[in-house]
Amino acid sequence: MPAEAIRTDKFTKVFDRQTAVDALDLVVNRGEVFGFLGPNGAGKSTTIRMLIGLLRPTSGSAVVAGYDVRTQPLEVKKRIGYMAENPYVYEKLTGREFLSFIADLYQVPKDEARDRATQLLRLLGLFDDAEKVVEGYSRGMRQKLGLIAALLHEPEILFLDEPTSGLDPRSARIVKDLLTELARRGKTVFMSTHVLEIAEHMCDRVGIINHGKLVAQGSLAELRARQSDADASLEDIFLELTGGEDTAELTRFLAES
C-alpha cells in the first residue's frame, strides 16, 4: 500500500478556453487530514470533482488510493467517499431508504449496512428522523445524511466539500471529532473549507489554491517558515498568498464612505 493517498501530476482542467485548474501537483499522505483552501472560484471544487471522477481532467494525471482516476475509475470509486456542499439526495426517499440505496450502489452487505447506518444516524442525531422523507429535512440534516452516505461503505479516502456548512455548532463539533477519529484510524480526509479556523485546528497539512494554481502546500509550521513569520495565523498566510489587497481596498472603501 503506497504511503500517498493522493498524488496529482500536472492535473489540469480547461472549460471553454478558461483554465480552472492549472497543472496542479499535489500530494496527500495516508491517514492525514488535508485542508484544501482557496478563495471562491479558485478551483477547489473542480479539483475535487476531477479527483472523484465527476469531471474528466483536460490533461495531467492523478492517482487516488493507488489507482489512476482516468484508467481505473471504478477501483477509485470503491475506495472513496464524497460529500458535496449541497449533498445529492432523493427527496422522495426516507433517510433510511436513501442509505439503503447507497448500500446497494456500493454493494455493502445488507446487515452490515443497516448496523453501520444506525450507528452513524445515532451519532449524528438523525436517528429519530430516519424514517421521514428527505424533502422535509433541513439543510443541516441533509448535510448529515450526505456525510453518513459518504461513510457507509467505509472508504479509505473521504472527500468533503465544506463539511461543516449548514451544521449547528454541536453537529459541527461532532463532525470535526469524527473526522479526526477517522484520520487516527488511518483514513485520509481531503476537505475544502472556507473556515480557516477549522483548517488550522484540524488539518495536518493544507494546500492553498488561487486562480487554479497551487500556491502553497505543507503543514502550518512549514507555511509559517516559508513566510518567515513564526506567529502568522493561517488567515494571515492565506490572505498573503491569495491577494489580501482586496480586503485592504474594501476596508479603505468602508472607512471613506
Binding site: 465527476l54 471504478l74 477501483e75 470509486k77 470503491k78 458535496a84 445529492y88 450502489l105 456500493y106
Partner: peptide, 9 residues
C-alpha cells in the same frame, strides 16, 4: 443527482 450515481462504483 446523476453525480451520485456516477460517484458510486
Amino acid at each position: 443527482n446523476i453525480g451520485l450515481l456516477k460517484l458510486a462504483p
